[in-house]
């Protein structure tokens, strides 16, 4: 959280799109990561993340700071993720390949320690993890993304997903279990240990 977020928020409420752009800049990565890890698809994530910020802009006058801005943001993101899934189910059967599609030129985090081969391996590896994630039911996926990728506490997750702390605990346990089962079917993931340098 930035100390002068409140000022940016106030200016955005007054219609200052520049201020809002700056606010977006500060939080876009968080929102986009959740969107991407949830949808597994770069362009869907883009649309979703933009929709999140549009909602944010519209709802900003009602944000009074009782909750933290980040939590509020995650809440909107989670809701839109759920909506997105509902909409997708209605229209198309998303194939797993389609879901993991990374268009050419999609930026990937650059890691200078790894050789190009290693980078490629790592990317494929991550894609496999993403595929497993995408095979999970949406509520498991959400809680896993919030906890494991965004590092939110149980309380923060509870606030973002609008559930109790106890529910977070049990749901996370089941979600991790389900995820384990997914990857146990893909032994190569276990064989490939460690360049999980972070």
């Amino acid at each position: 959280m930035y100390p002068d977020d409140r000022e940016l928020i106030d200016r955005s409420v007054a219609g200052d799109l520049e201020a809002f752009s700056e606010l977006v800049r500060r939080y876009e990565k968080k929102v986009f990561t959740v969107a991407f890890r949830f949808t597994g698809n770069y362009s869907d994530a883009c649309d979703l993340a933009q929709e999140v910020f549009i909602r944010v802009y519209q709802a900003l006058p009602r944000f009074r700071g009782e909750a933290s801005f980040t939590t509020w943001l995650y809440r909107i993101t989670a809701n839109l993720c759920r909506d997105e899934l509902r909409r997708q189910k209605r229209h198309k059967k998303t194939s797993l390949d389609e879901m993991v599609a990374n268009p050419a030129g999609t930026p990937h985090p650059v890691d200078e320690d790894l050789s190009p081969d290693d980078v490629l391996e790592r990317r494929e590896f991550q894609e496999m993890v993403q595929v497993c994630l995408n095979e999970l039911p949406e509520e498991y996926r959400l809680v896993l993304v919030m906890r494991e990728i965004q590092g939110l506490s149980y309380e923060e997750i509870a606030a973002a997903l609008d559930i109790s702390s106890g529910t977070v605990k049990s749901r996370l346990s089941r979600a991790r279990q389900a995820f384990r089962q997914k990857i146990s079917g893909r032994q190569e993931l276990f064989a490939f240990r460690p360049r999980l340098v972070k």
């Binding site: 990565k29 991550q126 995820f179 999980l196």
Partner: peptide, 18 residues
Amino acid sequence: SVALLRGLPEVSPPAFFR
């Protein structure tokens, strides 16, 4: 398995996003 998930990096949106 948790380590696998935590190994997934954060992702930035495309340049034209904002």
